[in-house]
Write a protein that binds this DNA or RNA. Structure first.
Lengths: 232, 232
DNA sequence: CAAATACCTGAATCGGATTTCATGTTTGGG
DNA sequence: CCCAAACATGAAATCCGATTCAGGTATTTG
């Protein structure tokens, strides 16, 4: 009967989180407007400054209506982060199609990541804030992205494009981390004369990063020229 | 504002933030107890779950007393982050003393960073949260660390230990980012069978990271003879 | 010791948030 | 055209935490 209703529901139906009821056209549109407003408000104000009132006002919707679609403030935030995750990965895989070599594809994916961050600087801050609002969702976000990198790296190692001595998982996380911090420093923090964020990475920085990555990944002719064993 | 005043302050004056008055022995002790309690509470609960009441209770101090020493919740948080910054950098520079080569020193600094993160996992989460609580302080934190890296890299380039084609600033931020995310993934997220965080990085990960960094930094034999490594 | 100074206190103030709910409105199928 | 069902609403209940303040206690000084 009622006991396992909630647990069984795994698939993303067009369902109100709060009530479990299906939505009509009208309801669907309202839900969408709420998500779009949430995107703006969370991006501008951060999670704790944001409020349900601000979101519903922005959406042009009554306060009480919110709870027909989402259980809580945290719940809509999580939905938003998952949506952004979809969009980042889309931006990355889109950038990768058409790349010729394996290594070329890695580079392109990276570029796609930066394009997204540059186009939606505030949005990417939302994702980072998830670490403190909803850690599980952030893990999901990172893990999904890293999975793509990792399998790409393995494939590139198989073809000999990438140093076989690298650990794919570690390398994938290293690349993510680089991307994050360089994006934060040179896209989110940087402002031009008019206080506008740059549309893309400074060429000097981009070149420096490319060199760094190419160095790191390139298959090395002799596998053990460097100090192979750490102390002890 | 008042914040930049404090930020410029590199050295800890014995001054109450709220009143600007110097402290006696007793006052000094009280201030210290507040900071220590804040460290525990912010680490366990995060900024917004933490409250002045919880901090003063933990410190065994009256609620009102708090405001004799700090202007606000944000103010004590900032003081804490600056304190942690000092400690991280100390951990890094301590690890670097005694390193023989330039490149060796870079590696040691990195290890120092991880040692701190492994020893105080929750504390490093506090630093990261500063991005959303007090962005200026976080910039200061990162910038101070990066400055050290950057000048180290320049020196290592001068001696030929590090690829001269790398941009030192970009490279420094890339290294920071790697360290952050790998620390988060393999130290903060990882739990052993008893739910305890690991005391140090998994050897596989550490080795993978070392290889990655060595690849990235090593001066490339593009025009000269094969890699000449300092073996020591 | 007396007065001044420094330090301490927690009840009360104040503002602001999430969430509920009783009631009204719209929609769509028969 | 009627009436469930779905959707919408905002005032009010409820909660919570930062900050203030009027009135203490300890410590030092003359």
């Amino acid at each position: 009967m009622s006991m396992s209703d909630e647990l069984v529901e795994h698939e993303e139906e067009l369902v109100s989180s709060a009530t479990g009821r299906p939505l009509t056209k009208r309801g669907e549109a309202t839900r969408r407007r709420l998500l779009e407003a949430a995107e703006l408000v969370f991006a501008e104000q951060g999670y704790h400054e944001a409020s349900i009132v601000k979101i519903t006002e922005r959406a042009g919707i009554g306060l009480g209506t919110f709870y027909l679609y989402f259980d809580s403030k945290q719940s809509i935030f999580e939905a938003l982060v998952l949506d952004l995750n979809r969009r980042v990965r889309h931006s990355m895989s889109e950038a990768m199609t058409g790349a010729s070599g394996r290594l070329e594809a890695e580079r392109a994916g990276f570029a796609g990541f930066f394009r997204f961050t540059a186009e939606h600087p505030a949005l990417y801050r939302v994702v980072r804030e998830a670490e403190f609002v909803s850690p599980e969702v952030l893990r999901l976000h990172y893990t999904r992205i890293v999975e793509g990198y990792e399998s790409g790296l393995r494939a590139a190692q198989a073809t000999g494009d990438v140093d076989r001595a690298l650990d794919p998982e570690t390398t994938a996380w290293a690349l993510m981390g680089m991307g994050e911090l360089i994006g934060m420093r040179f896209l989110l923090w940087e402002r031009d004369a008019d206080g506008r964020p740059p549309a893309e990475l400074d060429p000097r920085v981009f070149a420096g990063m490319t060199r760094f990555i190419d160095n790191a990944l390139a298959s090395r002719p002799s596998t053990s020229s460097a100090t192979e064993e750490e102390d002890r």
